[in-house]
C-alpha cells in the first residue's frame, strides 16, 4: 500500500479504510496482532486483514460485515484526523487542474495543515515530482512528516517548519506551481514568485474571506502575475430516492355511466425515482484565486545568475 501506488493485498503497516456503511468510514493502521472495535464487532488484524485483498468483505465478531478499502487521497480527506480546517475534494480537484499538476511537477505548498491537499498533490506529481510544504506550527509539521513516511510518500516531500511569509519556501526557482492557504497570502506572494521556475508557472491562493482575496489579487498584480482569476466551486449532492406520490381522487368522471370498480381507488399512488438535495450543504468553503507567473525575461534572469555566482565565490 502506498498513497501513490495501488497494491492488491493488505500488508502489515498499511493504512486501510474500514467502510462501515454509507458515509461511515474509519482509517486504521494494520498491525500484526492488533484489534479494531467497530459497531459490528471486533476486527482482528492478523486474521481478518493481513493477506486479504483490498475491497473484500470482512466479517466482524458480532457477525456484521464491513469492507476494507485501499486508501486514496480522496478517502483520506474524508477520514484524516483534523488538526486544522481542511480542504475538501471539490476544491482539491479544481486546484489540481488549474495549477496544471502532473507527474513530475514540483510544487510548493503552505500551510501543510492536516495534509489533505498534500496527499492529493503527492498522488498527482509522483513518481518524479516533488512537494515542498511549509508549516509554521512545529507539532503539525512533525506530525505531517510522520504521516507522509507512514503513507510511503516521504521520498516525494520535504516538510519545512517555518513561516512562509517571513522565510519563504526554502527553495528558489524550482517550482512549477505554488499553493497558499494561509491567513495573509498577500505577504507570501513575493516568496511564491521567487520559489517558481524562471519559465513561469501557476499559483493558487485559497481564502475564505473576500477581503483576503482583494488584497491577494492586488499583490499578485503588483508582482506582475497574469491571468488572475477568482472562482468559487461548490459540490451539490443529489440523494437518490424512491418516492411515492399519491394521486388525487376527483370522483367519477361521468357519474351515471362509469361503474365504480374502474375508478381510481382513493389510495392510488405513483412510484418514482428521483433525487433530493440534502437538507444542508457546504455553501461556502473559500475563494480560489489563480494566476500565472510569466517567464522572467532573459536579461533580468542573468542578473540573478550572476548575483548567485558572486554569492558562491
Amino acid at each position: 500500500m502506498s498513497f501513490v501506488e495501488y497494491s492488491e493485498f493488505i500488508q502489515e503497516g498499511d493504512v486501510a479504510i474500514i467502510f462501515l456503511g454509507h458515509d461511515s468510514m474509519m482509517p486504521i493502521k494494520v498491525q500484526q496482532g492488533a484489534q479494531t472495535q467497530t459497531r459490528y464487532g471486533v476486527i482482528r488484524h492478523s486474521k481478518d486483514l493481513i493477506g486479504q485483498r483490498f475491497g473484500t468483505k470482512v466479517t466482524c465478531s458480532k457477525g456484521g460485515w464491513v469492507y476494507v478499502l485501499h486508501p486514496t487521497p480522496e478517502l483520506w480527506t474524508l477520514n484524516l484526523p483534523h488538526r486544522t480546517q481542511i480542504l475538501y475534494t471539490t476544491d482539491i480537484a479544481n486546484i489540481t487542474m488549474m495549477l496544471e499538476l502532473k507527474p513530475g511537477s514540483v510544487v510548493c505548498e503552505s500551510g501543510t495543515g492536516s495534509g489533505s491537499l498534500s496527499h492529493a498533490i503527492l498522488r498527482t506529481i509522483a513518481p518524479t515530482g516533488h512537494l515542498h510544504t511549509v508549516e509554521f506550527h512545529q507539532q503539525r509539521a512533525e506530525k505531517a512528516a510522520e504521516e507522509f513516511r507512514e503513507h510511503r510518500v516521504g521520498h516525494l516531500v520535504t516538510v519545512r517548519n517555518q513561516d512562509v511569509c517571513k522565510e519563504g519556501f526554502g527553495v528558489t526557482g524550482v517550482a512549477d506551481a505554488v499553493f497558499l492557504d494561509i491567513p495573509s497570502p498577500w505577504e507570501a506572494i513575493q516568496h511564491a514568485k521567487s520559489a517558481m521556475k524562471k519559465q513561469g508557472g501557476r499559483v493558487c491562493s485559497f481564502s475564505p474571506c473576500i477581503e483576503q482575496v482583494q488584497k491577494t489579487c492586488e499583490a499578485l498584480a503588483g508582482q506582475g502575475f497574469e491571468e488572475i482569476s477568482t472562482v468559487e466551486v461548490l459540490l451539490r449532492v443529489h440523494e437518490v430516492r424512491s418516492i411515492t406520490l399519491p394521486l388525487p381522487d376527483f370522483g367519477p368522471d361521468k357519474p351515471l355511466e362509469t361503474p365504480t370498480d374502474t375508478r381510481i381507488p382513493s389510495n392510488a399512488s405513483v412510484l418514482c425515482k428521483t433525487t433530493t438535495p440534502p437538507r444542508e450543504m457546504a455553501g461556502h468553503t473559500g475563494y480560489l484565486t489563480f494566476a500565472t507567473k510569466p517567464r522572467i525575461h532573459c536579461l533580468f534572469y542573468l542578473q540573478f545568475v550572476y548575483f548567485g555566482l558572486i554569492m558562491w565565490i
Binding site: D23, T90, N94, S229, V233, L234, L235, R236, E239, Y287
Partner: peptide, 30 residues
Amino acid sequence: IECYTKLREQGGAVSLRLTDSWIRHYQVLP
C-alpha cells in the same frame, strides 16, 4: 439515477454518489 439504482441492486460498489458542481467566477477590483 438508473445507474445508481442498478448498481445498488447488483452490489459490487460502495460510496455511490451522484453529484454536480457549481462554479462562479468573480470580478475582483478595488
